[in-house]
Design a protein around this nucleic acid. Structure first.
Lengths: 242, 242
DNA sequence: GAATGGGTTTTGGTATCACCAATAGATTTT
DNA sequence: AAAATCTATTGGTGATACCAAAACCCATTC
């Protein structure tokens, strides 16, 4: 049990209202995750068993599982050998949070897009200052596949490849938190962009990607940053035309 | 008929079909949020009414409300005139997401702290490139209050002021998305740090803050960045000693 | 007349029970 | 052996009842 001074509010993540039964259940499962007693891939008991074991109603267990599932901590499968399984982490968690803040008008789309541009630029600075030269293999491969997807007119594949492109750029930094943040932002942008990929100028995209990679390979980080920024601003401008 | 806050018309809910029922209910409410039909402060119909209008069971409505509540989109109150109320956005949404990713070992605390340092540094670059000189009023005020809190030994106040300090730094950029991201990271760090604030060297903290502000006021952004970075690394190092 | 105190109503919280729907594995049939 | 079928498991939904808190109303009391 955590020691704390009297009268101090509890930690931000665990809501103070311990009165509701399903919240206690949620907390118990979260604790078992934090302590390592439960890990990705593990399976929770069936809802009915869990309810009986915890001496609560199945409704309560279900509400707790719904919360954890929605938080991305577990997923659910029906049928025999089904149940609730602990998940791997996913940037969708952060993505959803940003998305909710957008719909609540707590942040503006414009600011979010600017932040994205700034963060990607910052990452290139990080890469520049790394001791070793970046491994551009993944990005080169991505470019080749993007060219193939453009010629074959495979729009869904283009979207997927764009997502991987930014993921690979972030991965150059070797920082998992940055990778997740960028992935989340990319996912968010793509939910706005999904149905209008075909409108975008494919040749311009390819040209920009090639220039970006050339700059990067030659160590011209400022030019790479400028190229990426210009491309992002084009995409963002595209988002406003609707 | 459900009575709602005056001024807004009653919301129309349409019956439900396809997929998991509660997910459709969640989506329907999210859509009403995105379209502006529902906004912060509004009250949803009572669970029983909502269930009847949607032609689903109250169980389904409750699971949907649990999900939305856990996502921070609404809160619930018991009793007469209680119900589900749309909330304002909060960085706790993003904080929770990062926290879950931490417990799933999808990202490392070390990477998260480095990302925080990088992002704050980037923001100072943004401030440097702004056309107008930054308004340091909030930060000066924060420093004065921090000095008072240190002399009076008010640890909770110190934690609160530290949170506001980083919030104010991010606010210098004028970008709401960056502010939310920094707030989320700060909240996360403080959940690890909260109970050990008194261990930290208060005089060193104050000296660092004063130097930071002096650099900023004089337009020495690189020095300010270095000072902030050094302070963050001290804090982060403090996190590891446990 | 103001304050007190207890009903009454509204509304979320929990408990049960019943049944549907999908799924994997075992069994039977062809 | 392959295909169809059965069966047990497990999540998904519906329905009903009752509890607990909160706001309100109103009679009682001082």
């Amino acid at each position: 049990m955590t020691q704390r001074s009297p009268g101090r509010p509890a930690v931000a993540f665990t809501p103070v209202r311990g009165g509701r039964t399903f919240e206690i259940v949620v907390q118990q499962i979260r604790d078992k995750l934090a302590s390592g007693e439960l890990g990705p891939g593990d399976k929770l008991p069936a809802e009915r068993d869990l309810a009986q074991h915890l001496n609560v109603s199945r409704n309560v267990v279900r509400e707790a599982l719904r919360i954890l599932e929605n938080a991305g901590l577990l997923s659910t499968r029906k049928g025999a050998h089904g149940g609730a399984f602990i998940e791997q982490g996913s940037p969708a968690l952060i993505s959803q949070a940003f998305n909710d803040l957008l719909t609540l008008n707590a942040i503006s789309l414009d600011d979010l897009l600017k932040a994205r541009e700034l963060m990607l630029g910052m990452m290139l600075d990080v890469v520049r200052d790394l001791p070793a030269a970046p491994d551009l293999g993944a990005l080169r491969n991505n470019l080749a596949e993007t060219e193939a997807a453009v010629t074959s007119g495979d729009s869904p594949r283009r979207v997927q490849l764009a997502r991987e492109f930014y993921h690979d750029v972030a991965s150059l930094t070797g920082n998992s938190a940055l990778v997740f943040t960028v992935d989340a932002q990319t996912g968010l942008v793509q939910t706005f962009l999904r149905y209008r990929v075909q409108d975008m100028d494919a040749q311009q995209l390819l040209q920009s990607r090639r220039a970006f990679l050339d700059h990067l390979a030659a160590g011209r980080f400022e030019e790479a940053k400028a190229e990426l920024g210009a491309h992002l601003r084009r995409v963002h401008k595209h988002l406003w035309r609707r």
